[in-house]
Design a protein around this nucleic acid. Sequence first.
DNA 1: GCAAGGTC
Length: 687
Amino acid sequence: MPPRRQQTKVLCVAEKPSIAKAVASHLGGGQVNTHNTGNRYVKNYVFQYNFPAWGECEVTMTSVLGHLVSRDFESRYNNWRACDPSALFEAPIQTYIQDDLKPIAENIKSQARFAKYLYIWTDCDREGENIGDEIRQEALKGNASLSQPNRIFRARFSNIERAHIINAACNPVTLDDAQANAVYSRIELDLRIGACFTRNLTLSVQPLFHQHFGNREQGLISYGSCQFPTLGFVVERYLRVRNFVPETFWTIKVMHEKEDIKVNFRWARNHLFDRMPAVILFERCLAARIARVTKVQTKPTSKWKPLPLTTVELQKCGSRFLYMDSSRVMTVAESLYTKGWISYPRTETDQFDGGMDLRALVQKQTQGGPWAGLAQALMNGGFSAPRNGRNNDKAHPPIHPVNFVEPTQLDAQERSVYEFVVRRFLACCSEDARGSKTDISILYGTETFNASGLVVLARNYLDVYKYDRWTSSQVLPDFQEGEVFEPTEARIQDGKTSPPGYLTEPELIALMDANGIGTDATMAEHILKIKERNYAWVQPRGRRPQGNDGDDEAESGGEAPPAANATRGRRGRGGARGRGGRGGGVEGPGRGATTGVQEFIPTTLGVALVEGYENMGFEISLTKPFLRKEMELKMKAICDGQRTKAEVVHETIEQYRDVYVRTQQRLNVLRDAVRKYCLGPIEAHNG
DNA sequence: GCAAGGTC
C-alpha cells in the first residue's frame, strides 16, 4: 500500500460506553481497534470512516459516563453553621471533575489534540445536549483550534440500528446551546435551593428532636424539588384515607333468571345517597311489575395489546406483576442491559422507529424459553406492527429484548424482568385480543338497568402476555328487544362508600410521571430517598380488609412502623384500613392475602413536614408539584430561545428567597407541626 | 451532612 497522506482525524464522544461500542461497530465495519483508557468502563475504538463532508478519516470513538463536570459551593461554605443557609442563594459555585472521572477527561483532551473535528454522540435530549457541552469544553482544552467554525458537530440519532446510525454519521448537526443552558440553570437552581432549604430545615427542626429525645438520632431533614412533592403525594393520600367518612348509599338490585341463568342488572343511576328518592323509584319499579327489554346489542370488541415499554411502565408493572419495587426493577434491568440481553432501560419512548427490524428480534425469541412457540407463531404470520404511543424522547427506543438468553442462565429476579420484557415485546407484535360484547338494557318502571356479557373469541396477545386478564363473563341468555318479563328478584339495598387505599408504588410513579417529578432515570431514586430520610415507609397492601382469613401473618410482622398515632386529635373515623380495590394487579401464584403491591404510609415526620409547610399558607406550596412544573416551563422557554439562563436563574432564586424569608418568619408553624406529630401533645412544650 | 441529573 502506498503511504497515506496525513489523515484527517475525527474524535467522536458518546454519552456512555454502550453507544460508543455500537456506533464503532456499525461505522468501523469489522475493522475496529480497541484500546483501553484510564477508566475501566471507557474504551477507545479506532477505525476508518468515509464521512461525506470530510472524506476518509481516522476516527477515535470514545465516551464519557454521563455528566463529566460536578458543581458545588466553594469549600468555605462547607460548614453549615458558618453562614446563614440563605447565603447559598448567591454563594459562588465551583466546577470540578471528580477523581474517578479525571482519566475520562484526560482521554478526551489528549484524543482531541490531533483531531480536526469533534463529533458528539450524546443522547438527543436536554441532558445529552448539556453533556455534549461539557465534552466540547474538555476537548477545547486539549485543542483550541477546534473552536474554529465548523469543527464541532453532534449526531442526531434515536436508536442504534445500523442504518439509522450510518444516516446520523452522514448528517451532522450542531449542538443546541439553548438546551444545554436550560440544564445549566436546572443544575444551579436545584443545588442552591436544595442545599439552602435542607440546611435550614435540618438546623431548625432537628434540635427539637434532640431536646425531646436526648441523644436519639434524627438524621438530616432534606428538601428537594423532587423529593418533597413525592412526599406530598404520599401524605395527601394518607390524609384522604384517614379523614375518610363513609357515606351510606342506596341502590336497586334487579335479578332475572332465564334459561337457568341468573342475570344481575345494574341500576343506571348506580346509587343514590338519599334514601327517600331511592325508595320512591324502587316502588315505581315494583308498581310497574313488568320490565321491558329496550336494547339488545351484540358487537365485536377488542382488548388492545399493550404499548411499547417505557421505563415508567416497566416500574409500574414491576410493582404490580413482579413483586419488585421500582428501584429494584431498575437495578435488575440495568444489569440485563449491561449484559446485552435487553435494550437501554431508561426511555420515555413508546413508539418503535419504523426502521427497526422487529421481526429479527422476534425471531431471536424462538430459540427457547416458554414463549418460544408463541414467538414462532408470530414468525409464521401472526406478526402485527406494534401500536404507537404518544411519547418519543428521540433518544432511545422502547425497552425490548435485543438477544435471547436461556432463562436458566439468569438469577430469579433477572429472569422475571427479562421474561416480562420479552413477553411485553412479543405482545406488542401480536394482534389485539378479540371478543364479542352483548349489552342489554331494560326499562323497569321509570328506571333503566343494564347487563352485559363478554365472549372472548381470540386471545391473541393475551397468550404471551400473561399479566393481563380478559375472560369471558357468564354467557347471557337470549333476550329480544321489546320482550317483557317480571324480574325474578328486585330489592333495595344499602351500602357504604369505602375509603381509597393508601398510595401504591404504581400510583405514585404515575403521579410523578404526570406531574413531571423526576425523570425516567430518577423517579425510583426519589421514592427511595423519601424512605431513607424517614419520611415514609411501605407495607404490602392487603387484598382483603385486615383480619380476614389470617393465613398470612408473616406479611405484617416484618417491619417496625414508626409511631403510628400520627392522626392524634384529628377528626375522622378510625377504621380506615388500606383497601382500595384499585390497582389490583394479577393474582399471586396460588395463594394470596396480599398482592405484590406495596403501599406508602408517611411517617409522623413526613406528615409534619407537609402539614407544617401547608399551614404556612403560601400560595405556592413546596410540597405540591407546581413549582417543579414551573421550572419545567422555564427550561422550555430557554430551549425555545424566549428566555435566557441568567433571567430564569435570577427570577427563580428571588422567588425562593421570598419563600425562605417567609418560612423564617413562620418557623413556629413548622415547629408546631413537628411537635404535634412527632413529639406528643403541643401543650407539653409551651415555653 | 445539602439537590437532581447523567452513568457503571
